[in-house]
């Protein structure tokens, strides 16, 4: 089974192999970089692994949507059609900076680096699209960013219920539907501890009386 998979992987073009490797490393690195949310939500070790896999799947879906949007937009708007595999290679190459995604873990510098990496990826995509399609900057910008805008729009349209689907998927895959902000979680914890402590003190006073 593994041999067959390896053989079929070897059979594909070196460019696609390289693209798959970049995508795999980028997803892995980004997930570790962003793993703070999992710790903050107090997941167990097994849940941690399952959550990483679930988030990797969601990231892959986003990536594929973006790839398809680049392919569709360049065909529909500018009449240039390229096979899906070629567009896949272009988009994954532009994701190369995300291999440094683990650096997001660095305290203080991490979130600035994350912003920098995202900007770098977008610029990379525009350059790669412009080069591969022989587009001007404006055309490449439209093709690269319109897909991202569509995705943002789709996730904010409540009637599409994408958020509910995401929560359902996370619940099935990881046992947790929602991942909350660390500050909210910690504040709720401190407040609950205070209430428990006061109740215990009240009981103690009752016993003393």
């Amino acid at each position: 089974m593994l041999n067959n998979s390896l053989r079929s992987l070897m059979a594909i073009s070196p460019e696609l192999q390289h693209a798959l490797l970049v995508l795999f490393l980028a997803i892995l690195s980004l997930l570790f970089g962003n793993s703070v949310v999992l710790f903050a939500n107090r997941v167990s070790r097994s849940q941690f692994i399952r959550s990483l896999l679930a988030f990797a799947f969601l990231f892959l879906l986003t990536f594929l949507f973006w790839t398809l949007s680049v392919q569709a937009l360049s065909a529909m708007v500018f009449g240039v059609h390229k096979p899906f595999v070629d567009v896949f290679i272009i988009v994954s190459q532009s994701f190369t900076p995300f291999i440094l995604g683990f650096l997001i873990l660095l305290p203080h510098l991490g979130h600035y680096l994350y912003a920098l990496l995202r900007v770098w990826v977008v610029i990379n995509l525009i350059i790669h699209v412009a080069h591969a399609y022989d587009f001007g900057s404006a055309q490449a910008l439209v093709v690269s960013l319109l897909g991202w805008l569509l995705l943002e729009l789709a996730t904010s349209l409540s009637f599409l219920k994408l958020d509910a689907v995401k929560r359902w998927f996370l619940k099935i895959a990881t046992g947790k539907a929602e991942y909350r902000d660390p500050n909210d979680l910690v504040m709720a914890y401190v407040r609950a501890q205070r209430a428990l402590m006061l109740q215990a003190a009240q009981q103690q006073e009752g016993r003393d009386a």
């Binding site: 903050a40 305290p107 991490g110």
Partner: peptide, 20 residues
């Protein structure tokens, strides 16, 4: 680095709640 963790909005609440 621990001071940087304390000041980081992602880790700070957790770290500081522990010390508190």
């Amino acid at each position: 680095f621990n001071v940087a963790v304390s000041a980081d909005p992602r880790y700070g609440p957790i770290n500081n709640a522990g010390v508190a």
